[in-house]
């Protein structure tokens, strides 16, 4: 597009078609999400727009599904469970993921390719296969239907995302800062906590956010290794979609979309901060 001045009329027409096509694709990407939001305010228990809604009749809209969501013990406790599981998972995955990324970013790392392949593999293996394997593994250990079981499983699944995100922020990380710290007589541990960690913190936090979101949304492994005490929001949604299609699900979905937007904006802020810290210029 930068070469606009070279373009002939037919090329410009192609340009317009191209833009139109891209617009269509963006619509295709985002529209399904947007449709849910107004429907969740439907006063009627339907999954579709009523004619009153299209006329913007104020009585056609209500907060009743949000109210029911909030008042229902089941949904509330699953929200608590989801937050608990996702938070602990994010912490565990971040600790392990940062170690992995730090090691892998060192040029002298032996067997880097193999180790990287192993660390990323949970992302690649089909989730049902992972879930079955974890189930066979957990069963004799008595970890089925326990919080530690779900958290271990989620840490496994989210670890690759943390490794990938933190590795990306370590690119361009100035290693002379570490050496400077060491030469000033600080212990390696101290250098890590006072030099390395603050610098890569935005990357670590984005990795943690990533882990949080993935654990918060995960349903298949929860279906295999959790029991009713670890009921999470996605599992409750899954049950709802297969049983009673109530518009509460749309309300929950809207809340989840809201959470995603907030986290995404946080991530964007972190990315900018990380770019600044690393001295990557803003273009």
């Amino acid at each position: 597009m930068a070469s606009g001045s070279y373009r002939t009329l037919s090329e410009r027409m192609w340009g317009w078609i191209f833009l139109l096509f891209c617009g269509g694709v963006f619509l295709f990407l985002v529209m399904p999400l947007l449709v849910i939001v107004p429907l969740s305010f439907n006063a009627q228990p339907y999954f579709t727009f009523t004619s009153e809604m299209l006329r913007f009749d104020s009585e056609a809209f209500s907060f009743r599904w949000y109210e029911q969501f909030w008042l229902s013990d089941k949904w509330r406790s699953s929200l608590v469970n989801s937050f608990f599981i996702a938070t602990v998972t994010a912490i565990c995955a971040s600790i392990l993921g940062v170690l992995a990324a730090l090691g892998l970013s060192r040029p002298e790392m032996p067997y880097r390719r193999l180790i990287n392949a192993i660390l990323i593999s949970p992302l690649i293996v089909p989730i049902v296969v992972s879930a079955a394997g974890l189930f066979f593994f957990f069963a004799p250990l008595g970890l089925i239907g326990t919080f530690p079981g779900v958290i271990i499983a989620h840490t496994v699944l989210t670890l690759p995302f943390v490794v990938i995100t933190v590795t990306a922020t370590l690119v361009g990380f100035d290693k002379s800062l570490i050496r400077a710290g060491l030469m000033c007589g600080a212990s390696p541990l101290r250098v890590f906590f006072q030099v390395t960690l603050p610098l890569i913190l935005p990357g670590v936090l984005s990795g943690a956010l990533f882990a949080f979101v993935i654990s918060f949304d995960e349903v298949v492994v929860v279906l295999f290794v959790a029991s009713v005490e670890q009921q999470t929001v996605p599992r409750q949604m899954w049950a709802g979609l297969r049983e009673e299609l109530s518009p509460i699900i749309l309300a929950v979905a809207t809340v989840l979309i809201g959470v995603s937007v907030v986290l995404l904006l946080m991530l964007e802020m972190l990315r900018r901060r990380s770019d600044r810290l690393r001295g990557v210029e803003e273009t």
Binding site: F138, A139, P140, T146, S227, R242
Partner: peptide
Amino acid sequence: LSENYNGGLAEIKTQVETGTVTW
């Protein structure tokens, strides 16, 4: 406490055989 399922013995079998009976 009420819990829903779609029939079958899968969950019961899992719980009994792993010694984590919650139902």
